[in-house]
Design a binder for these strands. Sequence first.
DNA 1: ATTACTAGTAGACGAGTAA
DNA 2: TTTACTCGTCTACTAGTAA
Lengths: 218, 218
Amino acid sequence: MDSKFAFALRKIALLGGLEDYVALSSRELGDTLEMSQQSASKRILELLDENLITRDLGARRQRIKVTSKGRDELKQEYSEYRKIFELADQVTLHGTVTEGMGEGGYYICQPRYIEQIEALMGFVPYEGTLNVLVDKEDLPKLDVVKGSTGHRINGFVQDGRSFGNVIAHTAKIRNVECAIVMPERSHYSNVIEIICQYHLRRTLTLDNGERIDVKIKI
Amino acid sequence: MDSKFAFALRKIALLGGLEDYVALSSRELGDTLEMSQQSASKRILELLDENLITRDLGARRQRIKVTSKGRDELKQEYSEYRKIFELADQVTLHGTVTEGMGEGGYYICQPRYIEQIEALMGFVPYEGTLNVLVDKEDLPKLDVVKGSTGHRINGFVQDGRSFGNVIAHTAKIRNVECAIVMPERSHYSNVIEIICQYHLRRTLTLDNGERIDVKIKI
DNA sequence: ATTACTAGTAGACGAGTAA
DNA sequence: TTTACTCGTCTACTAGTAA
C-alpha cells in the first residue's frame, strides 16, 4: 500500500473509522493530515477508488468507514511494527485447552498434508489436533503470527473436495515441540489447532479447561 | 513525520536497523521501497538530514542504523496502531507492589503539583506514591500509555530546583480510582508510580511483592 | 457549511552519468 | 561494483472557485 494511503487510512481508523461510519469532513481530514481541504478531498476519492474506505455522502457531512480491505492493509502494517518492537522471534499465547470440533483434526490427517508436514517440520503428526482457546487479551498476538511467514503446506483437491493451503508455525508447549496450523485464508477464530508428533493430551495429561502457554516461533 | 520517511524508516528497522548498523545499498533499499536506486539514495540523504538514521559510509557498502529520534518516531506510529487494534480505551498492566524510591512521592507532594492534580483529576492525592513493578511482558503496553494523551501537570521552578512536567492517566486498582503519574520526558522505567486520594497500601492492604492489576484509561 | 473541479506550481521521481 | 549528481518529466499539491 502506498504510504500516503496508509497514513490517511490510519488517521481515519484512529477516529473510529474501523468500527463504524465516522463523520469526517475533508477539511478536518486535511487538518489532521496537515494538508489542504482540496488535497484531503482528493485523498478521500483515491481511498474510495482503492476500495480502502466506503463513504456515506450525506447532505451536510460525509461519513467514512474503513473497508475490510483497508482493515487488512492496516493490520499488515501493524504486524510489521510488532515485528520491529516485540523483538519477537517468539510469541507466547496463553489459553485454555478445549474440545476440538474435529474438523481440523480430520483435515490435517489427509496423507497429502501429512507427507508435506513430515518434509517441512520433520515429524509425522499424531492423528488429530489439540485445540486451544486463546485468551482475549492475546488475540492481537495471533495477528503477529499470521503476519509472519511460517511454513506453507500446499492444498490439493481429492475426491472432488478441495483442501486449502495451510500455514504451520513451529511451537512449543511445556518444552514439547509441536506446530500450530491454520488455514492460509482464515476467517477470524479464537481457537488455534496444534499438531504434534505425540498425543499431546496424553503426553502432557491435558484436560479440557486446563491453562497452557503456547510458545510460537515466528 | 512525513509518511514517506516513516515508510523507509520502517523498512530499515525491519532489516534490523534498530539494533545495529545494517549493510544496505541504495539499490536494495530501492527494491524494498519499490523505487529506483537514485530515489532510494535521495531518501537516505533525506533521512540523514532529518536525523532519523546515521550512516557508516564504507568503501564498498554503506551501513545504516536508526537513530534514537528515528526509533521514537517509529514507536509513536506503533503506538497509534496499538490504539487502533487494541481497542484499548483501557490497558491493564500486571505487576508487583514494590518499595518506592521515595523520589516520586517527594516530587508529587509539592503544593504546585497538588493544586493542579486537584483541578485536573478531582482529588487531592494522599502523600506519597504506590510503586508497582510492571511485568516484563506488559512493558510494551506502557508505550501505549505513554503514546496517549493523559493530563499534563505543568512543571515549575522553586528554590532554584526545577520540577518538570508530569503526565497523569486516570486508573483503577481493584475498583479504587487512582492515577498513574510519570515524567513527561521519562527515560525507560519498569516501575510506575500511582497516586490516590486514599492511602492505597492501607486501603487495599497491599504488601510488597503483592500482585496487582492496574487498569489505565487511555 | 459542505465537496470537488480546474489551473498553475512545487516537488518527487527516474534516466543518464560521473566519481 | 558502489553513491549521488543533474536534468527532464510527471505527479501531487494548493489556490481559486463552482455547485
